[in-house]
Design a protein around this nucleic acid. Sequence first.
DNA 1: CACCAATGCATAAGAAAACTATGTATTATT
DNA 2: AATAATACATAGTTTTCTTATGCATTGGTG
Lengths: 113, 113
Amino acid sequence: MIYSSELIKGTLKTIILKLLKENKRMYGYEITQMVKDMTKGKIQLTEGALYPSLHALEAEGIIVAETEYIGKRVRKYYSLSTEGKVRTKERITELADFMETMRFLLDIQPAKG
Amino acid sequence: MIYSSELIKGTLKTIILKLLKENKRMYGYEITQMVKDMTKGKIQLTEGALYPSLHALEAEGIIVAETEYIGKRVRKYYSLSTEGKVRTKERITELADFMETMRFLLDIQPAKG
DNA sequence: CACCAATGCATAAGAAAACTATGTATTATT
DNA sequence: AATAATACATAGTTTTCTTATGCATTGGTG
């Protein structure tokens, strides 16, 4: 099953930020692959969704980019800014809270720890 | 805290369907109030978001409407169609699965049941 | 009685966000 | 040699929500 894109919309940026928080430094393609791996293919980020989001986060000052060359191929590594670290915590907290609310609304039993 | 609207986007229709499943028959305004009550005000559906969604679900044949008059005031009651009941189950299952995946991705501990 | 808040529907215009499609280029595999 | 994978980017379209507005009824309060 691949999740309908509607579901991912609201959580995409938070996913990106969480991965950057854990891995310190990642490039776009790497993010798509890691999300795919971690979700067993259930979430497949398209480049048309990912790159604009990365650019938006960069414009907001939440992440910073460094360009590197691997041979002749360019890579843009992203990492959290100081402010980004704060914002990331806030976002994750909000999302966790939201999921708890949804769980109650939808009457879904939590999985065991 | 009121959740950022991004979060609600992907789940709005599923919330509507779940409430109709549990309550058999509801009208728009009633849905906004019930969501507000059940979430302690954390999710506030605006009419501009709700009514277009209801119309879309009706156009898809997932819900059906009946108009009633309470005095001179009109009310449109919605309920799940036969197909809507099937779709509702699917959607809830998908959302539950998605939330489980997000929980794993974001490394969030489940609340105790 | 006058006024305002709440109830109840609806839609138009605009904005936000992702999707599709496309483009460019390098590197690895077959 | 051809194809798949890696790696970036963006233009145009669509979807969806938000904001704003409109209309109308009903209930409560000063």
